[in-house]
Design a protein around this nucleic acid. Structure first.
Length: 440
RNA sequence: GCCCCCAUGGUGUAGCGGUUAGCACGCCAGGUUUUCAUCCUGGUAGCAGCGGUUCGAUUCCGCUUGGGGGUACCA
């Protein structure tokens, strides 16, 4: 099996494109096949190095490697032009100056379901000759057979008047030349398939197998876009998701195993992936579930690796001790700093928390806590806990009446890692200083 | 308009003629707990509608409705 990633270099790698790439990759790896990468754009101006790099970077982050490429489709232009010439001279294509308006007029005259048929004018854009009779039957690996009647199809433009090739000609030729056996792409290309098969047939070649994936939608059922929180894998990375978790989630978005497990590591995915069981219905991207899956992967990382991930994400070292006391509380890498930043930055500024937990009513508790902690002979999690619990007893208060004020004094907010562990990590001096500051 | 694709809870899916319609996320309730989160237990909610075929339809067929894609001298 030989498949291809064929993203267009329009900037970032979209989540939908990432899923398509993932499915190609899984299918190929499952089959011990080859993945060919091609940047799909016949227009060299658009496939800028910057745009291409963005795509490659996204693919790399996701962990999807390829065996050949990257190649710009524009690099193949001489070959495309040669095919056009060949089709022209064999009479299977012709030149016409007909415009979109002419096509419209043709339909007004012959009916909307009648495809445009033009005259050979020896000049203008190149259109492929399409017979009125016959049909193109696409035996899709995912959807079964789809039949397109030739009559309905407007004779497609395969090259501009200047001879430069257009997409439907270029892909057909490139897939052929690259020896692609399976074209796995979004359903938005299903209609194009008819044209591409027609091109291949005109060349006397056999089309590859096709598999069309349903599209991805946002929570509102509309096309996935920035409004939905994230639209590219780069954004997923910036939100602190792990590549393996994203792979897991994306694989399940549109493909279900008979097996009822949800957490499926990549090597398992490769083993069980099967194109023929890919869902036909469009799926909605649900970040809540991605978060959950991500949390599962995050917590299985182990302290050292999680620390390394967090440090790389945050961009600073020495986070190990904080990761030790906060690691199990976060679902994404991005949640670490908001939870633990106070350790380095000092108490956060949360007026509501201060008002509620550092007011006059809480003074006695804070003073008692300060006194008990200051008197501690040794500063350990256990001794701290004993001291504070003793304060709770002495005040005959609820644990919260002591712990929350202390927490707010240290962190500035009502949410933090465990209070004893936090005290321990902060150290005696800093802890007492912050408590003192809160008492005023 | 025309061509094409799709349809199980809010979401992702399992099911491939006879099931109490399963699992997961979410949500709700309870438990654990120093906050938050995790974790544990329980609960909530679904076969779009209408016709067929059949002894029997979520499952097969048709129509309707709804969603999506294509219809460029874009990709």
């Amino acid at each position: 099996m030989r498949v291809r990633f064929a993203p267009s270099p329009t900037g970032q790698l979209h989540i939908g494109g990432a899923r398509t790439a993932l499915y190609n990759w899984l299918a190929a790896r499952h089959d011990d096949g080859t993945v060919v990468l091609r940047i799909e754009d016949t227009d060299r101006e658009r496939s800028t190095q910057e745009n291409t790099d963005q795509i490659l970077q996204g693919l790399k982050w996701l962990g999807l490697d390829w065996d050949e490429g990257p190649l710009s489709q524009a690099d193949h232009e001489p070959r495309h032009r040669a095919v056009v010439e060949q089709l022209l001279s064999s009479g299977q294509a012709y030149r016409t100056t007909a415009t979109a308006d002419d096509v419209r007029a043709f339909k007004d005259e012959h009916g909307d379901d009648r495809g445009f048929r033009g005259e050979d004018e020896q000049e203008g854009a190149v259109r492929l000759r399409v017979p009125d009779d016959g049909e193109i039957v696409i035996d899709d690996l995912i959807r079964g057979t789809t039949t397109f009647q030739n009559v309905h199809l407007d004779e497609p433009v395969i090259a501009r008047a200047d001879g430069s090739p257009l997409y439907n000609l270029a892909v057909a030729v490139d897939d052929l030349d690259a020896g692609i056996t399976d074209v796995i792409r979004g359903v938005d290309h299903l209609s194009n398939t008819q044209k591409q098969v027609l091109v291949l047939k005109a060349m006397g070649e056999t089309p590859p197998r096709y598999a069309h994936l349903s599209l991805l939608h946002g929570p509102d059922g509309k096309k996935l876009s920035k409004r939905h929180g994230a639209e590219s894998v780069q954004e997923l990375r910036d939100k602190g998701y792990l590549p393996e978790a994203v792979r897991n989630y994306l694989a399940l978005l549109g493909w279900g195993d008979a097996d009822e497990s949800t957490i499926i590591p990549t090597d398992e995915l490769i083993k069980s992936f099967d194109l023929s069981t890919v869902t036909q219905a469009p799926a909605q991207f649900d970040e809540a579930k991605l978060r959950w899956i991500n949390g599962r992967y995050l917590h299985e990382l182990g302290h050292d690796q999680l620390t390394a991930e967090v440090e790389q994400f945050v961009g600073r070292d020495g986070l190990g001790p904080a990761v030790a006391i906060a690691g199990e509380k976060i679902q994404t890498l991005a949640e670490f700093w908001p939870l633990c930043g106070f350790i380095w930055d000092g108490p956060a500024d949360d007026p509501q928390a201060r008002e509620k937990w550092l007011g006059q009513l809480n003074r006695p508790a804070l003073l008692a806590a300060h006194e008990a902690l200051a008197a501690l002979p040794d500063w350990t999690v256990d001794s701290i806990e004993q001291a504070l619990r003793a304060v709770v007893d002495a005040q005959s208060a609820k644990p919260n009446a002591v712990f929350q004020p202390v927490r707010v004094a240290l962190a500035g907010t009502t949410v933090s890692p465990g209070i004893f562990e936090t005290l321990d990590l902060l150290g005696r001096e800093e802890s007492l200083k912050r408590l003192g500051d809160a008492i005023g």
